[in-house]
């Protein structure tokens, strides 16, 4: 087996006590790893810490213990200057396509910001072509560039958000419930798009979701989280077919309850 692309060791995050509330241990020593080109599914319900995990990997959340490695780099301890140079390597696709785009910027402005993040950023005409190329790649016409987010449907916005995440040429993409806010037929479009981009660009995905059917469909390996801990992890097919932990079994039973035979 190759070395993991992303390795998280004993990650701990505690939210400090707030007016009358005890401190919350959001992550109590989480260790997971994602190998190059695979989809690592992180499954859990609200409060399981899966979103805190995502934010930690993106340096959007300070960590209180443990380490995050990206290939040979200790990612979690990068100094600001080094982080600026390497930040492009990990990007994220958010859940709510209505909240993830700045309503006051045109699509071109939003995507240009992503282009600035690249180590060698194209300028002028090359930048323009790059942006239009990406719009085409995610299935939007060129003239989408001069429009504002409110002119697009949820699915179209999610395509734009995907372009924004991939323009910096990341190695790891964290996708936090990327399709759960979308309609079924749009979900399918976006999942197909993500999968084709994964194959084409050899991306590693950390795929955060509460939906076991989705994990079963797309993830190669899966980690089941509950209350800040990983209760079970392994090969996705194995975990879904022979769950060991009681909580995984409960999740599977709830999901089976919604299965459609067609």
């Amino acid at each position: 087996m190759p070395d993991p692309r992303l390795r998280i060791e004993d990650l701990r995050v505690t939210f400090p006590a707030r007016a009358g509330r005890a401190p919350v241990e959001a992550l109590k020593g989480v260790s997971v790893e994602a190998y190059p080109g695979e989809v690592l599914g992180i499954v859990g319900e609200s409060g399981s810490g899966k979103s805190t995990l995502a934010r930690s990997v993106l340096h959007l959340q300070a960590i209180d213990g443990g380490r995050i490695w990206l290939d040979d780099t200790e990612w979690s301890t990068l100094v600001p200057a080094a982080l600026r140079r390497q930040r492009h390597a990990v990007q994220m696709v958010f859940q709510d396509p209505h909240a993830s785009l700045n309503p006051r910027l045109t699509i071109r402005e939003t995507l240009a910001e992503a282009l600035r993040c690249r180590p060698q950023r194209p300028r002028g005409k090359a930048a323009r072509q790059e942006i239009e190329g990406w719009l085409d790649r995610v299935g939007l016409p060129k003239d989408a560039a001069q429009r504002y987010p409110h002119e697009f449907s949820g699915g179209q916005r999610q395509r734009i958000a995907i372009a924004r995440a991939l323009i910096p040429q990341p190695q790891v993409v964290v996708a936090d419930e990327p399709v759960s806010a979308l309609d079924v037929s749009i979900q399918a479009q976006i999942l197909n798009l993500l999968e084709s981009l994964r194959q084409e660009l050899d991306l590693t995905f950390v795929f955060i979701t509460h939906d076991l059917e989705l994990v079963g469909y797309w993830a190669d390996r899966v980690a089941v989280m509950r209350r800040g801990e990983v209760v079970e992890q392994g090969d996705a097919e194995a975990v879904l077919q022979r769950p060991q932990h009681a909580y995984t079994q409960e999740l599977l039973a709830s999901a089976a309850d919604k299965r459609v035979r067609y």
Partner: peptide
């Protein structure tokens, strides 16, 4: 805390640019 501001941080935008381009126009 909105996603588009997180996205700008994730893209390594400096704080003054985030305030100027992402926050103020939306409070305008």
């Amino acid at each position: 805390e909105r996603d588009f501001v997180l996205a700008a941080r994730m893209l390594g935008q400096p704080w003054y640019r985030i305030v100027w381009r992402h926050l103020l126009p939306n409070v305008l």
